[in-house]
Amino acid sequence: MATPQKVPGSLNIPREALFAALFVVCSILVFVSIELPNRVSNNSADLYKVLKEIDKTKPVILQSDWTKSTRGESGAQFDALVRILIRERVKIALMSGADPQAPEVAREAIRRIAVETEKVTGQPYKQWEDWVFIGFFPGIEASLQSFSSNLRNALSANKDSDTAGVKRSVMESPVFAGVNRIEDMGAYIIVTASKTSRIAIERLSGKVTMLGLVTGVMGPETYNYYQSGQLSGLAIGLKGAYDMESMMAYGLNTPDGQGVIKVSNAKVTDPIEGYTGEEFINLANGQKYIVPLHGAIILLITAILLGNIETIRQRRRRNG
């Protein structure tokens, strides 16, 4: 893109100055640790409600399709989600279907959060017993179609290491005890930065409770499926991550010691407890990155306004 020529007396801001402003604003604000006020979106509140009320005896399938390129949004969402699932002692069947890097990123995050939670609760969350990696599925369309028909058949040939280090069929893991079909799962949760949520919804909707955690870019088109009821809850972008963290820290519609409700929602009106009173990490990367996001968006709006002021001035100059 060519930089327009500077007109004397005009507001034309060079591209380099805009770049520098964004760099400075985001770099400084990432170190500012403040808790910004937040109003939880309806879709995030629904997501939190479903997660808190999930049947703990049933495992969930967690499809993780994000890599570090979207770690600001997806990473924060994934951490918050896994924190909730581990604290609720829900068993996880982890899988990926979009990027070969995704499984490694997700496994590392689950291991990290399992250790973090164990320090507080004293209860380990072990691979094979509490969570299992069921595989990377490059042909995700056919795989999900197969999950939809017969989950046990679809996964019987996939293996993971048991606690003794022996490779065994994932269906022999305690995670899948009593599970034969997709309908036996507690939920199908997808964390994605691409269109894989759509592939999953097309094949599994109506058979299992589906939840989505998507990036801001994917938000508008995935919101369609939340509005239609095919997704029971949805977190969108960094705001979604911060919403989840806020609800984890203060509960939803739950008064604190002084009777003040810090986080409320007009759609989900039942009081839902958070994870207060223990040394749990609730406010994490969502809170950390929402401050620079505020800075970046304010800068973006300011730049748009300045650009338009310049346009109006030029128009006036032209008209004499």
């Binding site: 599925f137 490059p138 042909g139 369309e141 056919a142 795989s143 179609q145 197969s146 028909s149 017969n150 058949n153 679809a154 019987s156 040939a157």
Partner: peptide, 9 residues
């Protein structure tokens, strides 16, 4: 279907 799934993968 599970065989087709493997083939596709």
């Amino acid at each position: 279907q599970s065989q087709f799934q493997n083939l596709s993968n």
